[in-house]
Computed example of a mutant assay.
Amino acid sequence: MPFSRTLASTLSFDHAVDLSSLPVRRHLPSHPFVERLRAAVPFDFFAVSGLDLDGYRFGSGHSIDTNVPPAYLDAYYGDGLLASDPFVKASSTATGVVIEQEIYKQDPPSERLLYLAHTFGVLNRTLFPIRRLSRIFGAVTFSRSTPFDREEIDFLGDISGTMHTIITKPIMERFAAQEMRLTDGELDCLRIASLGKTSEEIASACRYTTDTVNSYIKAATKKLSAKNRSHAIAEAIRRGLIE
């Protein structure tokens, strides 16, 4: 069966030549980290949304890994509910945890959204925004039939950043450098620089001139929106571009 542009049931990305050819909604029925987390705090469904890349940040609907029933997602997106969902609207500017029932008290959902939620059991959504500095680029959402208590919310909040990193790591490792247009030379220089090497030492290892090394690192720093070489290295590690 061919892959759908909107839904995949595997984390194998061998079929995708670039990020734009990867299904935007990927069904993830099981994952070792998710199952360990579920043992600590029971939940029915989860969604890991957004990437720290232009065009794929949270709210665009262009990158979602989830175990939510595909039929729910098909109806949700098919009916254009992303644009009108009060929960999503509140989440896009959130400074902390977003709890569905609290949002609905101020901004009631549509009858269609309520119908889908109760039909598929996607209830009591609780979202944790994922940030880089002041910018929200991702989110981790949990839901279950009963509301999460405060202790559970605190725990999920503490672990949500780690979960986002783990679930999106295969995508970022495969496509982030390509999407950000980092060249092999720029990545090589950042990788060796992360070992504490000077420009001269990087040049010797890569057989570049020192001026070329400095140009590569300067270009990579700009592409990563970093302040300096050290910041660029940290950003490259955080985004999974280098180890």
Rank of each mutant, 00 (worst) to 15 (best):
M1K: 12
M1N: 05
P2G: 04
R5T: 02
A8K: 10
S9V: 08
T10C: 11
F13E: 15
H15K: 01
D18S: 15
S21C: 09
P23N: 06
P23Y: 02
R26S: 01
L28K: 02
P29Y: 08
S30T: 11
H31Y: 04
E35R: 02
R36K: 05
R36I: 04
L37F: 07
A39W: 02
A40R: 13
V41W: 01
P42N: 09
F45K: 02
V48D: 06
S49K: 01
L51F: 08
L51R: 08
D54T: 06
G55K: 07
G55C: 06
F58L: 13
S63D: 05
T66G: 00
T66V: 05
V68G: 03
Y72L: 12
G78F: 09
L81N: 12
L81C: 06
S84K: 08
F87H: 15
F87Q: 06
V88L: 11
K89Q: 12
A90N: 04
S91P: 06
T93H: 14
Q106Y: 03
D107L: 03
D107M: 04
P109Y: 10
E111W: 00
L116Q: 13
T119M: 10
F120H: 10
F120W: 14
L123I: 04
L133P: 00
A139W: 05
T141D: 03
F142G: 08
F142N: 05
F142M: 10
